[in-house]
Computed example of a mutant assay.
Amino acid sequence: MSSGTLKRMRLSEQTIQYIDAFAEQEGFTGARKNVVVEQIIKEHQDMKSKETSFITQEVASTVRKEMRQVLNKILLGTNNTDRNTQVLIELVNGMMVNENVSDIVTTDDMEAQPVRTAKACVHERIKHMQQHKATQTYKRKRMKD
């Protein structure tokens, strides 16, 4: 005798036909229906587990691809900024050597009007680029929908 719990259930004729067809197809001829039902449930659980694993892998793959694209853009922007900064340092250093400047006044001590003008210009340029990028992103999303 089996060590399971005895339960009585009402099953539709269609369900019984499915259990019988499954038993015949899988070679459970002569087996009790509870053995067949347990096998169907086991296969269903295995399939659900595999399905969950597959979905997890797909999500991870998609996130990896998206992150790679975003990080590549950031890396390119960082490289460009670093290159521009190094060029500016070299230019300023050359000017300092050419003018025989021995020391400087920092912007903490006194900020010249040209520096304030340059900061305002850069601030507006960045704001414009952010707005342009937001508009382009919005247009791409609308086209996908």
Rank of each mutant, 00 (worst) to 15 (best):
Y138Q: 05
N100I: 11
T137W: 14
T135P: 05
V87H: 12
R140C: 06
K65T: 15
T81C: 10
A112L: 11
M110W: 00
L75K: 11
T56L: 03
V59C: 05
Q39V: 02
M96S: 14
S102R: 11
L91K: 03
K50T: 04
T5R: 14
L76T: 08
T62H: 11
N84D: 09
D46N: 08
A120S: 13
E26L: 05
P114L: 02
A60E: 14
T56Q: 07
A134L: 06
T15N: 06
G94M: 08
G4S: 12
R8A: 06
F22V: 03
I41Q: 06
L76R: 13
I55Y: 12
E90D: 15
L76M: 12
D20E: 15
T107Q: 08
K141W: 08
Q57W: 00
V35R: 12
R83W: 06
S3Q: 03
A21H: 10
E26K: 15
K144M: 11
Q57F: 01
P114E: 04
Q136A: 09
Q17L: 09
P114Y: 03
C121H: 13
V105R: 12
Q86E: 13
N34W: 00
L6Q: 08
N79M: 13
L88P: 07
E51W: 14
H132Y: 13
D108C: 03
L91R: 05
E99C: 11
S2L: 05
V37S: 01
T107C: 07
M143W: 00
E66R: 14
M143P: 04
I74A: 00
I126Y: 12
T85G: 15
N80H: 15
S61D: 00
V105T: 14
L76E: 14
V97Y: 12
E58M: 04
Q136H: 10
D82S: 15
E66P: 05
G77K: 04
V92M: 10
T78S: 07
Q113C: 02
Q113V: 03
T52L: 13
E111Y: 00
E90C: 12
V63M: 02
Q57E: 10
T52F: 15
E26I: 03
M1H: 08
T81L: 09
V87A: 10
L11Q: 04
R10N: 14
G27P: 01
E111R: 02
L75A: 11
V63S: 04
K48C: 09
R116L: 13
S102H: 15
E58F: 02
E26H: 13
R64E: 14
Q45H: 05
Q14F: 03
V70D: 10
N93Q: 06
Q113E: 05
I19V: 11
T106L: 01
E99Q: 13
T29Q: 05
N72K: 15
T29F: 08
I126K: 02
D103F: 15
N100V: 02
K73D: 06
V101L: 01
T85R: 07
N98M: 06
M96I: 11
K65N: 14
K48Y: 13
N93M: 07
V122T: 15
G27L: 04
T52E: 15
P114Q: 01
S53E: 14
T117H: 06
I19R: 00
T106V: 02
